[in-house]
């Protein structure tokens, strides 16, 4: 899952074959470089795999074990079979949370990719001020998400919040209490999610756009393509694998996103913005039901692995 997904390995293979032909006369040197380094590779990979095993694989095993137990946060685990899972699939809040988590993740990912692509296209067309904008647009990704979320949640307060004040000055009314209604609370949260993630996606996509050979575009101009046609006919198809990759990643990140939602709404009102990570946190640390929380985490994990796999497949097949 990487920006240059398939291409780097192609480069790799070419560089390695090149190396072979280049260095074959100096066989001695080549053997020296590889043979000893293969051992070094194995040695240096040991800590990588050990740490990943301890910090990723073991916790996953532990979570699965916890998900088939009852545990209040203290004392021994009490095995309960698949009760936690049965509960999850029959629980209305869980169904609701799954639904809004998917909605939240997909809409943030879609908007992020769409806006970032447009911005990248504009910047690559050298709009005025693009050098400064390249830097400025990443500010939201740099500021601590907690601070950002606290600012935005205070701005969405009716009457006194900045957003309402500005709307009021524009004559659009100043009493919108979006965060206070379970029908609308998710939208400001999506907005802030998009606002803070676009900068990163933009830089990645711009990197890809800038790799498109100028000659391709020049050829299109010669063929009489206008700006929009250049974008839809040349730029877009060429960067599609990257868009797919970043869309997939953005879904995964947003799905796991805890900080922004927690700081803005605590999952409320009446659990209307309790996306799965928040529901799991509350389940475990507020209600002391670690078993169901772990079951939620496992279900989420499985879902994300499916999304990830599909995402990788799609971005690959797009390219072939």
């Amino acid at each position: 899952m990487s920006v240059k997904n398939e291409s780097p390995s192609k480069e790799v293979s070419t560089s390695i074959t090149q190396g072979r032909t280049l260095f074959s006369p100096k066989k001695k040197a080549r053997i020296g470089l590889n043979a000893i380094n293969v051992r070094s590779a194995r040695i240096t990979l040991i800590p990588v795999f050990v740490l990943l095993f301890v910090f990723l694989a073991l916790p996953m095993i532990n979570s699965i074990q916890l998900s088939v137990s009852r545990w209040g946060g203290l004392g021994p685990l009490e095995p309960v079979g698949f009760d936690n899972y049965k509960f999850l699939f029959s629980d209305a809040q869980m169904r609701y949370s799954s639904r809004i988590t998917i909605f939240y993740a997909f809409s943030v990912a879609f908007l992020v990719v769409a806006i970032a692509t447009l911005l990248a296209a504009a910047v690559s067309a050298n709009v005025r001020g693009h050098k400064a904008m390249k830097i400025i647009w990443f500010f939201p990704g740099i500021a601590p998400p907690t601070a950002v979320a606290i600012f935005w949640s205070s701005s969405f307060q009716p009457e006194s919040g900045v957003v309402n004040v500005i709307l009021g000055k524009l004559g659009l009314g100043n009493a919108y209490a979006w965060l206070a209604s379970s029908d609308t609370a998710l939208y400001p949260v999506i907005f802030v999610g998009v606002w803070s993630a676009v900068g990163f996606a933009f830089l990645v996509i711009l990197g890809a756009v800038e790799q498109i050979p100028v000659s391709l575009r020049e050829a299109a101009v010669v063929d009489g393509a206008n700006v929009r046609q250049q974008f839809t006919k040349i730029t877009l198809p060429l960067i599609r694998p990257i868009l797919m990759t970043i869309f997939t990643l953005q879904i995964i990140w947003t799905f796991n996103g805890f900080t922004v939602v927690w700081a803005m709404t605590n999952g409320g009102p009446s659990d209307s913005t309790s996306i799965l990570p928040i529901l799991a946190y509350k389940e475990a640390f507020r209600y002391g039901r670690f078993g169901t929380a772990a079951a939620m985490a496992v279900v989420t994990g499985i879902f994300l692995m499916i999304v990830g796999t599909i995402g990788i497949r799609l971005s690959r097949s797009e390219q072939q």
Binding site: L45, N62, F258, A297, G301
Partner: peptide
């Protein structure tokens, strides 16, 4: 093979890790 193994580590949801981390 190494890349793919390492890569799979990036898909693991954080909430799956939090509770075991906490216990450990």
């Amino acid at each position: 093979a190494v890349m793919i193994t390492v890569l799979s580590g990036t898909v693991v949801p954080t909430i799956l890790l939090v509770i075991p981390y906490f216990k450990a």
